[in-house]
Design a protein around this nucleic acid. Structure first.
Lengths: 329, 329
DNA sequence: ACCCAAGTTTGAAACGTTATAAATGCGATG
DNA sequence: CATCGCATTTATAACGTTTCAAACTTGGGT
């Protein structure tokens, strides 16, 4: 009758000889509706293959049943988005939430997608990464009381949900391992300036060096955000400059491979400890010492946390620091 | 007044002293509305920061403004989803479409998400991959006249939109290269049985071998879908069996690296030509001959094609075969 | 017999938009 | 002067859902 006879509350109401309102409440298990009525309605709904119209629900209630994931499509960390999305979809599985990818274009301000989500009520909650110590997005979202979980911590006073990886622990362990192997001039490939985790990496690395009484160097002029080609070029520069460190802490497999490629092309051998997120550490040759950061788990946690945040749970219980695993040889 | 004073057609209508309907039509540039009125309304709308409520539009028109991307979160091809999503978001940039990721769980039938999209009108169009010659999803979507673009071709008689990569061409070129290098027992790591492109790979590979008068082997008991560990184990089996081929065509960087790792661990050297999608061919050592498949471009094409399909364009012009580039040494 | 309360069900309105059909104003035509 | 045609504008009714307050039932107590 309407378009294409899609079942609606009305078709159910007709068949059950009830009012639309009753059907609606029955389906939401309102205790005011007689238990037998609820059962009967559910049964009819199932037999008609009913499922509620999201647009109508959304219009009426203001709830979108959407979770937005802010993805920088050019993210350089290997498989970042992929793993995260895997975890998120897992967390959202069998819930009514849909996952919407909102791109963060690198030629536009980071805050833009957040503003548009707030302005147009495009989601019930939002997840993002690349968190900075004084993150504008976090500030804006807190101001609006809008549910979110970010990957990475801030230094803001107001507590908020986050999931982070212990990059300090990783860098500390990695540098320590290098030093134990006899490396005397370890260096760190830094994360892009401004990110909170860049500080964590740097501090973990320098702390380990300090504890060992060794001068560690943080490379400058290069970061994880750069292309493999740029990293290779930079390393080649160090080589021709005769200032190649003898050991590298690489916070990503791409940077590790780029460093290794540049060194090995020039006939230099080097020690590397890398963080990897893609699970491909086992097939890189030569083998590097490595630590695995489980981004899928991070995604799953963020998905779960966000749902709890939407349900109104306070932020203190929605924070988790993934520990750095021991180094896998 | 309503909730949180979000601007709506009504607030605009009030300010402009017009009826809601007029405002609606003015904003959609209906020629029936006086040009000056249209301008005035647009101006007021902008000043109020109006943007239409998607839920209401969707409820009223049946259009969702959503494009669904069916993603198998466990896809083994490196960065598959990531690159595809990058291309898609690029194609959807500055359109009114949102990108929704619908997971295809490997423990449930592939057709399920398609059914639910059709049943619940969750999107205006859908994009998916892992196409088979007699793809149920394609059949179902064609039956319903529902817009879609798939990555990979079918063997169905009804024309439909698709984007594919010339896997025949890749495999042919790869095998030819191996043979030219003196390989006498080339083999192919196959794609999972059932996928259309598995046939293309196989045929391209075998054709090249045949043209050269050489017996090529397609490995069995293993495929691209297997984990790196499984591939390594398989290769180790071949080695201990004393039946290791001397050259490999690998349709993915993961399989290439796994093959190389297993061989090099056992002290065997081997020739490999790989297809890569992650752009990291330059940092793998030793260097493999390789061909790049641009999945981001594929995603972008699919996004554009889908919009044209939704607009009613016939499928014949919405098909594109990405050519295999020459081998990069 | 009457009323009240508890237990159920229902009517009506609203969320913001668009499509249809009808109404309005106005200059020109007969 | 009545009428037609044209260019604009508008009232109204949906789309499918939820919620509020009001309206029914009962059965029991007085």
């Amino acid at each position: 009758m309407t378009r294409r006879g899609r079942p609606t509350l009305r078709t159910i109401a007709n068949e059950a000889d009830l009012a639309v309102a009753t059907v609606s409440r029955a389906l939401s298990d309102d205790p005011q509706i007689a238990p037998e009525t609820r059962a009967r309605v559910r049964q009819i709904a199932a037999s008609q293959g009913y499922s509620p119209d999201r647009a109508a629900q959304r219009l009426r209630t203001g709830r979108t049943n959407v979770i937005a994931f802010l993805l920088n499509p050019h993210e350089e960390i290997l498989g970042y988005g992929q793993s995260m999305i895997r975890g998120l979809t897992e967390a959202l599985r069998d819930t009514s939430f849909h996952l919407v990818i909102m791109p963060v274009f690198s030629d536009r301000p980071t805050i833009e997608p957040v503003e548009s989500i707030l302005r147009n009520r495009l989601a019930d909650g939002v997840i993002f990464s690349r968190t900075t110590p004084d993150d504008m997005r976090v500030r804006l979202l807190l101001e609006h009381g809008f549910p979110f979980v970010c990957h990475g911590r801030t230094e803001l006073a107001t507590p908020h949900p986050w999931v982070d990886y212990d990059n300090f622990g990783f860098a500390y362990a990695a540098a320590t391992r290098l030093i134990a192997q006899g490396i005397r001039r370890p260096c760190l490939i830094p994360a892009p300036d401004g990110m909170t985790f860049a500080q964590h990496l740097r501090m973990g690395f320098l702390r380990a060096c300090g504890d060992a009484g060794i001068a560690g160097e943080v490379l400058s002029g290069i970061s994880l955000d750069d292309t493999p080609a740029a990293i290779q070029a930079h390393i080649r520069g160090l080589i021709s400059n005769n200032s190649l460190p003898d050991g590298f802490v690489c916070p990503g497999e791409i940077s590790a491979m780029a460093v290794h490629a540049a060194c090995s092309d020039a006939g230099h051998s080097t020690r590397i400890v890398m963080k990897h997120t893609s699970g491909m550490a086992d097939i890189i040759r030569p083998h590097f010492d490595s630590i695995f950061e489980d981004l899928a788990e991070a995604g799953m946690l963020m998905g779960r946390f966000l749902q709890r945040a939407i349900a109104g749970e306070p932020p203190q219980t929605l924070q988790f620091l993934q520990p750095a695993a021991p180094i896998a040889a």
